[in-house]
């Protein structure tokens, strides 16, 4: 044990009027954590999908609603054409089975290293309260694909839209058991207001976030 640690803890304890670790405080803390108390939250409508879409648009994301998963390549082609950029992208492995060639999109299944103009990723879940995408890092979910490209295209199933951040955490606990290395929550394109408080999109990450929403 480092002495800095001991000294700091000793000073903290002295400030709190105790000499050693307090076992009662420890067990109270365990009980508290296990209960996961939830604070006041803004009320949400029944239709989480509508609220999510409304908020995502406010954050300057764009959206496209698809009928089936098979439509993803065509929707990507359509969006890239509208932007006027090459139909070239790096994508997550979960999209390897789709027919990209038929849609005329050159999708490389690999983690991006910074040269890909477009990144296509999945989404773990989304939060209606704020219009936020929740992405969990993993071997099949390389994080930089949603950060380095100028354009981020995210595929989300409407069934994965939850109300609040608290619900997203509960979902992670239930399905994954523990936190992944990184939970990245994305609410629209990267932005900065550091010069004269004027908002500019595309600070370091994507200039635009486009959502493909599956039923």
């Amino acid at each position: 044990m480092s002495s800095a640690r001991d000294n700091i803890l000793a000073r903290v304890r002295a400030a709190l009027g105790r000499q050693a670790a307090d076992p009662a405080a420890r067990s109270a803390a365990q009980v508290h954590m296990a209960a996961h108390p939830i604070g006041p939250r803004p009320a949400l409508p029944e239709d989480l999908r509508a609220r999510f879409l409304e908020n995502a648009l406010k954050l300057e994301s764009s959206t496209d609603e698809l009928a089936t998963r098979k439509d993803i390549p065509v929707a990507v082609a359509r969006y890239l054409d509208r932007l006027g950029v090459d139909r070239r992208a790096a994508g997550w492995p979960e999209f390897a089975d789709l027919d990209w060639a038929a849609a005329g999109v050159d999708l490389a299944i690999r983690p991006t290293q910074g040269l890909d103009p477009v990144g296509v990723t999945g989404v773990y879940c989304a939060i209606a309260e704020t219009g936020t995408l929740v992405v969990l890092a993993g071997s099949e979910a390389p994080s930089a694909t949603l950060l380095l490209p100028d354009t981020h295209i995210a595929v989300l199933s409407a069934g994965r839209i939850v109300g609040s951040m608290e619900e997203a955490f509960a979902l992670i606990r239930r399905e994954r058991g523990q936190m992944p290395r990184a939970v990245n929550m994305i609410s629209g394109p990267s932005r900065t207001g550091d010069i004269e408080q004027t908002i500019v999109l595309g600070a370091h990450g994507p200039f635009r976030v486009h959502l493909l929403i599956l039923p």
Binding site: S139, P142, S143, R181, G205
Partner: peptide, 18 residues
């Protein structure tokens, strides 16, 4: 909400690229 919220827990897992 801010555009990015990151929650980082520990070191990279097996097979993770980033």
């Amino acid at each position: 909400i801010t555009n990015y919220v990151d929650i980082l827990t520990g070191i990279k897992g097996a097979g993770e690229f980033h």
